Simulated scan of single mutants.
Amino acid sequence: MKALSTVVLLTISNLFMTFAWYGHLEFKKISWLQGLGLVGVILVSWGLAFFEYVFQVPANRIGFEENGGPFNLFQLKVIQEFISLSVFTLCAVYVFKTDKLGWNHFVGFGLLIAAVYVIFKKW
């Protein structure tokens, strides 16, 4: 249950992170955000990043093995990176609609899956 809670919280965290880091590139499509200058964009992004941490910190605390969770630090980081790239890809393709998936993306994801395997493998 702690593993699932960790993954779910990290996924929610990464949704907020993606919109904090890249969502402002779409502000031109939202009329009341179009006039924001750089400082305004930074403040909106910080507001979104706050919620990223609201979910990420508990995810890491719940999932960390020294707190009774199933993952070591390397495993937590690799899980977070895999989720981050997955969430980003889905947002780029289906929400922002700026890119299309190509063969190179699938090869890259295959290599990420291989990285997850190598990090989790007990040698």
Rank of each mutant, 00 (worst) to 15 (best):
E52Q: 08
P58W: 05
A59K: 07
N72Q: 05
E65C: 13
L76E: 05
I79L: 14
G69S: 05
N67W: 04
E81T: 14
I79G: 07
F64G: 11
F64D: 11
V78F: 12
N60F: 06
G63S: 05
V54M: 07
A59M: 10
L73Q: 14
R61V: 12
K77H: 14
G68E: 09
P58G: 01
A59C: 07
Q75D: 04
A59H: 03
Q75C: 03
V54N: 02
E81F: 14
N60H: 11
F55C: 04
E52H: 11
A59Q: 08
E66R: 12
V57Y: 05
Q75N: 09
F64Y: 14
G69H: 03
P70K: 00
F71E: 01
V57E: 05
I62N: 02
K77F: 15
N67T: 07
E81V: 14
G63I: 05
V54I: 08
E81K: 07
V54H: 01
N67S: 07
E65L: 12
V54C: 03
G69L: 04
E66K: 14
Q80A: 14
E66L: 13
Q80R: 13
N67M: 09
F71S: 01
G68I: 07
E81R: 13
Q75P: 04
G69Y: 03
V78C: 12
E66N: 15
G69R: 00
N67F: 06
N60V: 02
V54A: 10
Q56H: 15
I62C: 04
I62M: 01
N72L: 07
E81W: 05
E66D: 10
Q75M: 08
L76F: 11
A59I: 02
P70T: 00
Y53F: 13
Q56Y: 09
I79Y: 02
I79K: 00
N67G: 04
G69T: 04
G69K: 08
F55S: 01
Y53T: 08
F55W: 02
L73V: 12
E65A: 14
K77C: 15
R61E: 03
A59W: 00
R61G: 00
Q56K: 13
V78P: 08
N60S: 10
E81S: 11
V78R: 02
G69I: 02
L76V: 12
G69F: 03
G68L: 04
Q75I: 11
K77V: 14
G68S: 04
V54L: 01
F55L: 06
P58K: 02
G69D: 06
N72M: 10
P58D: 03
L73R: 13
Q56D: 12
L73S: 15
F64K: 14
E52C: 08
E52S: 07
R61D: 09
L76Q: 07
N72C: 12
Q80I: 10
A59P: 07
F55N: 03
R61F: 08
N60G: 03
F64A: 12
R61T: 10
Y53E: 05
R61S: 09
I79C: 09
E52T: 11
E81H: 13
E65R: 15
E66G: 10
